[in-house]
Amino acid sequence: MNAEQLQLIAQSAWQALPTLLAAAPITLGYALASMVLGLPLALLVALLRLSPVTPLRFLSSLYVSFIRGTPLLVQIFVIYYGLPSFGVTLSPLLGGVLALTLNAAAYLSETMRASILSVPRGQREAALSLGLTPRQTMRLVVLPQAARVALPSLSNTLIGLVKDTSLVSVITVVELLRSAQLVIARTFEPFGPYLAAALIYWLISSVLELAQRRLEARLSRQG
């Protein structure tokens, strides 16, 4: 690769940068929306997997197994292109968020379930002996401790979601990767825009990782 080629790549990356930066909030918004919506669903699934009711445990386990055992790209296709066969048509925005939410919830539920189980049984028994109901024990004693244990994995899931948003480009969502593809369609120079998009993904992930470390350090001082 000579100096002229390097200059061409740098120039194409620089020219693509405004378009890509404008799409970056869309990528981050998809990740945050999927995380916010996925957390309560993940908690519900985790509690169902710990339920003494066998059908509830089976159904929640089946959901987690199916989501974790199939590619996210296939899940996006099923939701966006498959649901219209049953009369359910979703916009690219809703279809993408729904697919990412369902996928994230399955993985987050395993993190939450393990975190809940990590809380010593003696603390639950002590809370119950003090007159707390099982629901109060879970809400006031178990979940706060489980949340601290789960924090690193939850943060890693959010970082993973930022990268997974690139897959919704297949349903015409104009996020970061799709924006790079549109730039390439105009300039016919792929390396620069793709490299610029990769750097933006890396920058977003690095900022989120830094925020995760600071939050963990603050929680450690409080603990």
Score class of each variant (00 low, 15 high):
Asn156Lys: 06
Pro120Glu: 10
Phe58Arg: 14
Ala10Glu: 14
Ile200Pro: 00
Met112Phe: 15
Val78Gln: 04
Leu203Asn: 01
Ile171Met: 09
Ala22Cys: 06
Gly192Asp: 12
Val162Leu: 04
Ala10Trp: 15
Met138Gly: 09
Asp164Lys: 15
Ile79Leu: 06
Val168Leu: 07
Gly69Tyr: 10
Pro193Asp: 01
Leu215Thr: 10
Leu59His: 03
Pro190Asp: 03
Ser60Asp: 15
Val174Phe: 09
Glu110His: 14
Gln75His: 09
Pro193Thr: 03
Ala24Gln: 06
Gly96Ala: 01
Val88Glu: 06
Leu143Gly: 10
Phe191Cys: 07
Tyr80Lys: 03
Leu219Lys: 03
Ser85Glu: 15
Leu100His: 04
Ala13Gly: 10
Ser205Arg: 08
Val74Asn: 08
Pro25Arg: 08
Gly223Ser: 12
Leu8Asn: 11
Arg49Phe: 11
Leu6Ile: 15
Leu28Asn: 02
Gly82Ala: 07
Ala105Met: 07
Gly38Thr: 00
Ala24Met: 08
Ser205Pro: 01
Arg124Glu: 12
Val119Ala: 09
Glu209His: 05
Pro190Val: 02
Leu43Tyr: 12
Ala104Thr: 00
Val174Thr: 13
Arg178Leu: 07
Val97His: 06
Thr101Cys: 07
Ser179Leu: 02
Leu98Ser: 04
Ser85Lys: 06
Met138Asp: 12
Ala127Glu: 04
Ser166Trp: 09
Asn103Ser: 02
Leu143Phe: 14
Ala22Pro: 09
Val74Ala: 13
Gln15Ile: 05
Ala114Pro: 11
Ala127Met: 03
Arg49Trp: 11
Pro193Leu: 03
Leu47Asp: 13
Gln123Ile: 01
Gln222Tyr: 06
Leu41Pro: 00
Leu176Trp: 05
Ala3Ile: 02
Leu167His: 13
Leu94Pro: 02
Lys163Leu: 04
Val119Thr: 14
Gly122Ile: 13
Tyr194Met: 15
Gly96Trp: 03
Ala127Asp: 15
Met112Asn: 10
Ala13Tyr: 09
Arg49Asp: 05
Ala198Cys: 12
Val170Gly: 03
Ala3Leu: 09
Gly95Asn: 01
Asn156Phe: 11
Gln222Ile: 00
Tyr194Lys: 10
Pro144Leu: 05
Leu108Met: 15
Ala106Arg: 06
Glu125Thr: 00
Phe77His: 10
Ala196Ile: 00
Leu182Lys: 07
Ala104Tyr: 04
Trp14Asp: 10
Ala42Asp: 15
Ala197Cys: 12
Asn2Lys: 13
